[in-house]
Design a protein around this nucleic acid. Sequence first.
RNA 1: CGGGACGUGGCGCAGUCUGGUAGCGCACUACACUGGGGGUGUAGGGGCCGUAGGUUCGAAUCCUAUCGUCCCGACCA
Length: 513
Amino acid sequence: MSNIRHALSVKRSDDFAKWYQEVISAADMAEESGVRGCMVIKPWGYGIWERIQRLLDERIKETGHDNCYFPIFIPLSNFEREAEHVDGFAKEMAVVTHHRLIADGKGKLVPDPQAKLEEPLVVRPTSETIIGDAMARWIQSWRDLPLLTNQWANVVRWEMRTRMFLRTSEFLWQEGHTAHADQAEAKEHTLRMLEVYRACAEEDLAMPVIAGEKPENERFPGAVETWSIEAMMQDGKALQAGTSHYLGTNFSEAANIRFQDKDGAQQLCHTTSWGVSTRMIGGVIMTHGDDDGLRVPPTIAPYQVVILPMLRDKPEDEALLSYCEDIKTALKTETAFGEKLRVMLDKKPGKAAAKRWDYVRKGAPVIIEVGGRDMDNGVVSLLRRDALWAENGKPDFHSPGKDAVAQSIPDLLAEIQNALFEQARARRDANIRTDITEMNQLSEHFDSKHVHPGWVEVQWCKPTGDELEKVVEQLKELKLTVRNVPIGAAPVDSACIFTGKPAVERIYVAKAY
RNA sequence: CGGGACGUGGCGCAGUCUGGUAGCGCACUACACUGGGGGUGUAGGGGCCGUAGGUUCGAAUCCUAUCGUCCCGACCA
């Protein structure tokens, strides 16, 4: 349908990276801040984050966690305690060294040498160490376990290369931290939270994911096991959308998190940590966006229904507005997904037709336009953002009756939510190859001019150490990475694609963000 | 952090090579027309050309530094 005049100037198929940036600015989600790698999240983008936050927070609380808040500054000595952890994060830290500025006599302010901190503070890149410190104080006995905490916070990682929402120097997230009496319980909890993330991604964000364990080389610094949910973006690349780590006793040893067991003996706790960030929003864009902008799943849309009166700056406007208010009032009494509908009546002066495209770009799930003729006929003009265009290349308006429209919206929103998920799942499934068993097939698949090579499921022998390094190098030449070892995969039935040894598990291999 | 490109009204760009104090499209404001679709016309408002130094009678334009952005690479829960 090439005669359609799309709402964006760049198409996904022409330049995916540029398209991604255009969606963010056209949907008015975020903008550059002037500070390297940091962004201003605008109301529509932040509204989506608030929705994700709220829905995920409920799920986290349902699994027994309480929220708390720890300082953004971590004493350097505290951070230094876990060697691998330090190794992983040291090169991307923001460090506070002074607590006062002083005029330099040339009209500038400089850090006052007199005000140098005795011990530098690092801006948290994650909070295992400072929370571990607290856990050591909070936990005395087996009766204090399990300790289940979570915090919503910002963190800073001095990234070399940043992209809005996907990798920013400062980002918002949720980090859960738990302590358990033994390994089995801690591991079980790691998987329980991974499942919470899967449900949140698939049910709340309508973003299909594959849950599995990360290979050794992709582990979180200091973790014994790292698990992830991986989503396929529309360009076929993988996005790690959430991680859950079993930390063993590494952080307990570093921070001395111990408890007295029933027999009176001192034991180290087994801890976990898990996080999901504003990166999820990047995932939503690249999962549901189209050539007209964003499409927000109704569960996380700041407004699920936007009403646009076709104002003419004439006396008749008053009746039209009152007609629209009726619709809004009726909608407000409805519920969808167990919550009240979120409805906006845009009364701002301006052409409805022009405003319509603003909301199309923002991806409001349902747009209701109302003009004088609708009013006369007792109907409204309704657009589904997920199915915008009719066969004739024009916006596909529906005309439900005014009195019936409110009641129909909850079902419609559920249908849209489902349609978005199914579209994404079908696309993902169509872009996973499972028939590749040889390295040359793999290079051919990813070398060829395939615009959309997607993911490949292969079998491997789960190498470790140097042997794994070799595999990672081979993959790197093709710009590929091992995404994860999916939970619940079929049993292996062939040789390792990299070494020829008997395979022990299946893995997903893909280009990644 | 290496290589490349770039930074000019809100957005997208021209002007930079060949110095002479800024222009286009969209958006914006006002009025009029139009009126079921992102409309038309007329008239306007808004920029010390990222920032700081330097060269020059004179700098968006030349030189230096610096900050930021994008692409490629290295790195990366």
